[in-house]
Write a protein that binds this DNA or RNA. Structure first.
Length: 468
DNA sequence: CTTGCAGTTATGCAC
DNA sequence: GTGCATCCACTGCAAG
């Protein structure tokens, strides 16, 4: 970092950090305070939209903080040994309180355009009773086969939505508009209304309700004006579009690495916290009711079997993916129905649309497929999943039936893996000259088969569509 | 069990 | 097109 390039603000900040470091080192309590000072360093940056004024851009150097409690570090909370004047509040006040959309807004677009758009779709849903779910005749997610050959990436379906590496992506579960929400490593949450040509602006709205990587996004299928985000900063926020507030739902000292919702119980949010703990947060009581220690390391994904919502799959950096029966999950010694062992960290484990298959993606360069009446059969194929430090890890996701999975590849393509005829292999790769970066995280549109969102380390979103 | 550290890499921008 | 700065991610091992 060349000193002459630093802004006044940055220079002062670095000086402060250096001074604090020296002071702390001299007191030999640096290691104890490291986490605390790091969280104090965390502060919201005014990342102006890169597209508004690139020449005035502020370096996005929000510190990434992995929260870890003293307890999990095996340390006593002995603040008595730390001079009072040096005790930095663990959580800066602005993180404890709700943030209004206006305060979190980091773009030049007005909140009102986004709010109106989302509320108008919610109203359509009310009039339609369920916004198309009945029309399609199926529950929360439409199933159907698609013609892979017809999938294409149109240039107008590409946008840079946020500044940083994207970790989470979710389509609005509406057939009436195409809107995606993404979360990046700086804590930005970006909305992209893909069909905004006739409306104001470019359809991109960005907010920064978090201070670290956004690990999960959930949108209630029947109540789209409530959007939940989870973050490495240890917070779960509930965005209420009507009130225009990113509320604070839950707060912990540990990082939250994953989040999911039971398809049949939208009031319960399941999330993975710290080194392997699964918690349930209840929206009505506003509390976490239950928690289990399911893994020895971070839980990377949580997923539910759509046909039997008591069946849940988790995967972890401890090298395993597990299937659990929630009705038989003992607090003391949780036992899994099935354990899939990989040689290295497992970064996703998702049930197929029918629920009869489970796909795992691991850093051991394999993709696993679990099948059978009681998930007793395992199949593994080789797939390069070494994404390195700059990219989000790959996660194989299911399409709109049990026949295909999609997973990123290191050559700027989307590998399509067929599970048909028990012969699991890459049958084709979605490629496009418009795809200038590697897509890592995906979301298939829940109501439009053939519409697949892929996201990159540069904050880009690609929306593949199918004409069939 | 904790700490330390090497190894793995792509992207956007300036030129 | 090519070179360069990114750096604070995360894993997995080795040593204490």
């Amino acid at each position: 970092m060349a000193p002459q390039r630093l802004t006044e603000y940055e220079r002062k900040r670095l000086e402060n950090i250096k001074r604090n470091d020296e002071l702390l080192a001299s007191l030999k309590i640096h290691s104890k305070l490291a986490d605390l000072s790091a969280s104090a360093k965390r502060q919201r940056l005014q990342i102006k939209s890169y597209r508004v004024s690139p020449e005035k851009k502020v370096k996005p150097e929000t510190p990434i903080v992995i929260r870890r409690s003293l307890r999990t570090q095996g340390k006593e909370p002995d603040s008595a040994t730390i001079p009072k004047s040096l005790v930095i509040p663990k959580k800066p006040p602005h993180e404890l309180v709700p943030i209004s959309m206006a305060d979190a807004n980091t773009c030049s677009e007005s909140d009102q355009v986004l709010v109106e758009k989302i509320l108008s779709v919610c109203r359509m849903k009310d009039g339609d009773s369920d916004g198309g779910y009945a029309k399609k005749g199926i529950g929360l997610r439409v199933r159907g086969s698609i013609d892979l050959e017809s999938m294409e990436l149109a240039p107008e379906n590409i946008a840079r939505v946020v500044a940083g590496r994207i970790l989470s992506v979710k389509f609005f579960p509406s057939a009436d508009m195409r809107m995606v929400v993404v979360g990046d490593k700086f804590g930005n949450v970006g909305f992209w209304n893909v069909d905004s040509e006739n409306e104001d602006g470019d359809g991109i709205h960005t907010y920064q309700p978090h201070s670290a990587p956004v690990s999960g996004i959930l949108i209630h299928p029947f109540c789209m004006n409530k959007i939940i985000t989870s973050c490495y900063d240890g917070l779960i926020r509930l965005l209420d579009i009507e009130k225009e507030i990113f509320g604070l739902a839950y707060s912990t000292d540990d990082s939250i690495f994953s989040m999911s919702q039971r398809p049949d119980d939208m009031n319960s949010t399941y999330f993975g916290e710290g080194n392997g703990v699964l918690c349930i947060w209840d929206e009505r009581s506003g509390k976490t009711s239950l928690s289990w220690n399911l893994h020895e390391s971070r839980i990377n994904t949580i997923d539910f079997n759509s046909e039997n919502t008591n069946t849940m799959a988790t995967c972890s950096s401890d090298g395993t993916a597990c299937i659990w029966d929630l009705r038989k999950l003992s607090k003391r010694k949780p036992e899994s129905l099935k354990l899939v062992a990989h040689k290295r960290a497992v970064h996703s484990a998702f049930f197929s649309p029918s629920g009869s298959l489970l796909a795992t993606t691991s850093l051991d360069d394999t993709i696993g497929l679990v099948s059978g009446e009681n998930y007793e059969d395992e199949l593994m194929i080789n797939h390069n999943n070494r994404t390195g430090r700059w990219l989000s890890t790959f996660r194989g996701v299911w399409g709109w039936d049990d026949s295909y999975m999609f997973v990123g590849n290191m050559k700027r393509g989307v590998d399509v893996i067929s599970t048909a005829t028990e012969e699991m292999r890459v049958v084709s790769t979605l490629e496009s000259p418009h795809m200038s970066a590697i897509p890592c995280r995906f979301d298939p549109h829940p109501l439009n088969p053939g519409m697949l969102a892929g996201t990159t380390a540069g904050g880009q979103v690609y929306i593949w569509t199918s004409s069939s």
